[in-house]
Each structure stands twice: as structure tokens, then as C-alpha cells.
């Protein structure tokens, strides 16, 4: 998708927060992305490497947790991990009214850094 602008957004968010928390240097950032968020982890890493050249981010590691797609059937209420992103039919009872309850995540969980 637009990984570069996403990474830029994350870095701005961290910079702003670090300023308030008196953090001088970042060691780690943790992102959570769902399989349905259409964001590629490799591409995020590449963009992060390219953008994190300054003192503040230079030694930081970007950790990415990928979440599976979880669906819940509207009829039988069972939950399933969706292996096939093309099939939104309940594997349990065959109903076609399933809800996606996990897999769309795209958020910055936390960051770690060193205080002044």
C-alpha cells in the first residue's frame, strides 16, 4: 500500500511522544498489523531503514507482529482463523454471515527508549 507514509507517520508519532516523555533515543518500536491491513512487513522494514538514519532512530529495531484473520459466524457464533482470504463462509455451519473480528489491525503498540 503506502508503507512509506505509514512509517513516516509512526516516526512522527514517536518523536512527538518522546519529546514529552524526555526520551532522547529510541531502541525499539512495536507495530501490530493484521493480515487484512494490506501493509507489507518487508516493505515497512525497508522504509524504516531508509528513514531512520538520524541519531534518534539509528539503533532502533522495528518489531512487527502480524495478526491472523479471525472470523465469527453470525449464526453458530463459532470463531475461526481464516486461512483462505477469499472465503467468508462459516467452516462450521456453512452460513454466509460472518464477521471479521481480527485482522484489520494497524497500530503502534509501544516504543522503548532511553531517558535523558
Amino acid at each position: 500500500m503506502h508503507e512509506l507514509s505509514i512509517v513516516e507517520g509512526v516516526m512522527n508519532m514517536v518523536r512527538e511522544s518522546a519529546l514529552q516523555s524526555n526520551i532522547m533515543k529510541v531502541n525499539k518500536l512495536k507495530l501490530v498489523i493484521g493480515r487484512l491491513s494490506m501493509v507489507l512487513p518487508d516493505s515497512l522494514q525497508f522504509c524504516f531503514q531508509a528513514l531512520s538514519q538520524d541519531e534518534f532512530f539509528r539503533d532502533a529495531v522495528l518489531e512487527i507482529e502480524q495478526r491472523e484473520i479471525l472470523i465469527q459466524c453470525g449464526k453458530c457464533k463459532q470463531q475461526f482463523v481464516l486461512e483462505d482470504v477469499y472465503c467468508y463462509i462459516c467452516p462450521g455451519c456453512g452460513a454466509n454471515e460472518v464477521e471479521i473480528i481480527q485482522g484489520r489491525e494497524l497500530y503502534l503498540d509501544y516504543y522503548e527508549g532511553e531517558e535523558n
Partner: peptide, 13 residues
């Protein structure tokens, strides 16, 4: 070292 919890949606804005 400190950890700062964010839980910020990247498309939140």
C-alpha cells in the same frame, strides 16, 4: 530504559 505504551491507530486521524 522506558517503555511507552501508545496503542495508536495508524489510520486514526
Amino acid at each position: 530504559m522506558v517503555q511507552v505504551k501508545m496503542e495508536s491507530n495508524l489510520l486514526g486521524a
